[in-house]
Amino acid sequence: MGPIITAVAAMGALGLGLSVVLGVASKVFYVYVDPRITQVADVLPGANCGGCGYAGCSDCAAAMVEGKAPVNACKAGGASVAQAVAGVLGVSAVAAEREVARIFCKGDNTRAERKFQYMGINDCRAAMLVSSGDKSCGYGCLGLGTCVANCPFGALSMGEDGLPRVDDEKCTACGTCVKVCPRHIPRVIPVSQKAASLCSSHDVGKLVKEICEAGCLGCGLCKKACPEKAIEVVKFLSVVDTAKCNGCGKCFEKCPTGIMQSLVFTVV
């Protein structure tokens, strides 16, 4: 009987000692955690995409509860999530405008020239390391699909022409594609934008003409045609001011390369 009693007593004492220590510690080292943080985290999408600028959904939830982030900080969740968060926190949500990513390059496999044949790792960032990419244009899409592979919502797909396609329904404007693209070709734009010059090249018109059939020459014909004065040519690239543009379409007719286009979104 002796050894059994010693064993039970020793282990019992160890267990008791530890539980007392933990019990006391849980009182002494008690940290108040706002229960609303978990509630808010529950209504967030939970994809941890980082589009809000915080380390993850729970981090963003904490910031929302503390008031450091607005209730519509979650771009991926959109209006419905903002509404839900507002419900938890008891404030009214301001509807944020829906945004969607667009690929600012039209230089597909047939229209844009390539300097050499790249046969390395299938990733745009890796391709950039080999004399800044195989495309003759230093600004255009390399077409290896780094954005497609990294989209946390599966909203991007690679088209047969070598340019990514955006599925507006799935795109949440989290901005991951913008970050991973070594040339920042995808851009997140509001769905109210009616026209855009779908090119990223800041090269002079003469050079663009030699290497790509679908580049912005910076000729400024669109700027002259625009009755609303909504277009600026910034370093040989036309930029549309969303606030002024009414989508009249006069610039589309004048654009010699046809890259000044009307934007069609499948979501509102």
């Binding site: 064993a7 020793a10 282990m11 160890l14 267990g15 530890l18 539980s19 220590v21 933990l22 510690a25 849980s26 002494v28 080292f29 008690y30 940290v31």
Partner: peptide
Amino acid sequence: LQTLAFILIIAGLVQFVEMVVQKV
């Protein structure tokens, strides 16, 4: 009883450390 005792100590210790670190 080594195995049993050590598991208990480690589990308790980790819990304790977690609480202390969270506070401190």
